[in-house]
Computed example of a mutant assay.
Amino acid sequence: MRMPLIAGNWKMNGSLTLVEQFGQAFAEAALAPSVEVCLIPPFPYLGAAQAALAGTPVALGAQTLNPEPSGAHTGEVSAAMLAEFGVRYVLVGHSERRSLYGEDDVAVSARVVSALEAGLTPVLCVGETLEQREAERTEAVVLGQLEAVFDALAPESRRRVVIAYEPVWAIGTGRTATPEQAQAVHAAIRRRLAAYAPELAETLRVLYGGSMKADNAAELLAQPDIDGGLVGGASLKVDDFLAICQSAG
């Protein structure tokens, strides 16, 4: 049985006040032990979030990393630095990193390897644009992004990755893939995982990352191959994010 994971990606949003509000809310909230929760604030708030979430069941995540261990990379953050703040999960290959900052499959693969070497769990983001979906290339694009990473990993490393399917056309647009659309892609991902090894299909978590909200979370999470959510805008609202977490319980 795969434990659902609900991860809140704040992107370039938030404040120290919001960090404290989340820490207090999750210290008081009754979360089902069968659900894992992760909060992913911007880098400057990692220290505050580590302190605010101490004693709560919420894990800490980061939004990206540089694959190099150190060096002259102004503005970048390494996996070892993230680990020092108690970070457990790190997003890799988010669509905004791919489209806005030029991270291609090679760069994404290097970041996954770096995260794994530091003991972090990479959340590999894959997804198609509206143009690619309308051209009926969804599976080719999504599975191609997956294969670019998994082909380069040793079998034991593949078992340590979380996958997040994020239809790019549904991120921040107010549009959401129907549960059936989302399930179809998740099922395709799981079939491809099974081709690597049957146990990967059975154990790896595949999250949905396309505008999950409090009012659609339960229906999405009820799909057999959706193991949680990578939540964007709704993760900035304490009550909404808590409601999504409770939907997964």
Rank of each mutant, 00 (worst) to 15 (best):
W10A: 10
K11E: 11
M12F: 09
N13H: 15
T17W: 06
V19N: 07
Q21E: 15
Q24M: 07
A29Y: 08
A30E: 13
L31P: 07
P33R: 14
Y45G: 10
Y45S: 10
L46R: 02
L46K: 03
Q50P: 02
T64R: 07
L65N: 01
N66R: 06
P69V: 14
T74V: 11
G75M: 10
E76I: 09
A79T: 07
A79P: 04
M81I: 10
L82M: 01
A83I: 07
E84H: 14
F85P: 00
R88E: 15
Y89M: 06
V92W: 00
G93V: 03
S95I: 01
E96K: 03
R97M: 09
Y101W: 15
E103V: 02
D104W: 03
D105Q: 02
V106G: 07
A107K: 08
S109G: 00
A110C: 06
R111A: 13
E117Q: 14
A118W: 03
T121E: 13
P122K: 06
L124R: 01
L124A: 05
C125S: 05
C125Q: 02
T129L: 11
E131I: 11
Q132N: 04
R133C: 00
A135W: 05
E136P: 00
R137D: 09
T138Q: 01
E139F: 07
A140W: 00
A148L: 05
V149D: 02
A152R: 15
R158C: 09
V161Q: 04
V161T: 04
A164H: 09
E166W: 09
V168P: 07
V168W: 02
V168Y: 06
W169M: 00
W169Y: 03
I171L: 08
I171E: 01
I171V: 04
T173I: 08
T173Q: 09
A177L: 03
E180N: 01
Q181D: 15
H186Q: 02
A187P: 08
A188N: 02
R190F: 09
L193P: 04
A197M: 11
E199F: 04
Y208H: 06
M212L: 15
K213R: 11
D215K: 05
D227A: 14
G229F: 05
V231L: 08
S235T: 04
L236I: 10
K237R: 15
D239E: 11
D239N: 14
